[in-house]
Simulated assay, not measured.
Amino acid sequence: MRIRYTTAKNGSAVKQAVVYSKEEHGIPVADVDVDALKIIRRLRGGGYTAYIVGGAVRDLLLGKKPKDFDVATDASPNQIRKLFRNSRVIGRRFRLVHVFFHDKIIEVSTFRSENAEVFNNVYGAIEEDVRRRDFSVNAMFYCPVDQVLLDYVDGLRDLRARKLRPLIPLDRIFTEDSVRMIRAVKYSVTGGLRMVGPLRRQIRRSVDLLASCPPSRMTEELFKILQSGYASPIIAELQRYRLFQYVVPRMDAAMRDKAFSALVHERLQTLDRQKQIEDDQRRSRALAYFLCDYLYLKSEFGAMDRIPFQDAFADLKHVIAPITPANKDVQKALVFLVRRRKWYRAEGTI
Rank of each mutant, 00 (worst) to 15 (best):
A286K: 05
Q276E: 03
C292G: 12
E266D: 12
A262I: 00
D272K: 15
F290L: 13
K298A: 03
L271V: 11
H318G: 02
E300P: 13
E300L: 07
A312K: 14
H265F: 15
E278V: 15
D315T: 10
Y294A: 01
I277Y: 01
Y289I: 05
A314C: 03
D279G: 03
D280V: 14
E278R: 11
A259Y: 09
R283M: 06
Q274V: 00
R285K: 11
R273G: 08
G302S: 05
Q269P: 00
D305T: 03
D279N: 13
F301L: 03
D280N: 15
D279M: 08
D272W: 08
L268H: 09
Q310I: 09
A262H: 15
A288T: 11
F313L: 15
D305F: 00
Q276V: 15
R283D: 09
A312P: 14
L295W: 11
D279A: 14
E266V: 01
Q276C: 02
A259I: 04
A314L: 09
L268V: 08
L291N: 14
R267A: 07
F260V: 10
L316S: 05
F301T: 02
R267V: 01
L263Q: 13
R285Q: 04
L271Y: 10
M304Q: 15
A303V: 01
R306F: 12
Y296C: 01
Y289N: 02
S299P: 08
V264P: 00
I307T: 07
A312D: 06
L295S: 06
A303K: 05
L297P: 00
D280R: 12
I323T: 10
A314K: 11
F313W: 14
Y289D: 01
Q281S: 10
H265N: 13
A262Q: 08
L268A: 09
P322I: 08
R282E: 14
Q310V: 12
T270E: 14
T270C: 07
D293L: 09
R285W: 01
R306C: 02
A262V: 03
V264M: 02
K275T: 13
C292P: 00
A303S: 07
C292A: 14
E300C: 07
D272C: 06
R273I: 07
R306W: 01
K298N: 07
I320C: 13
P308Q: 10
I277H: 02
Q276R: 15
A303T: 00
L291Y: 10
D272A: 08
G302Y: 07
F290I: 04
I320F: 10
S261Y: 05
F309S: 04
D311H: 13
L297Q: 08
D272S: 03
D279Q: 11
V319H: 04
L295P: 04
E266F: 01
F309C: 12
L263N: 09
A321E: 14
R285D: 00
I307A: 06
H318N: 07
P322Q: 10
Y294Q: 04
K298E: 09
D280K: 14
C292I: 11
G302E: 12
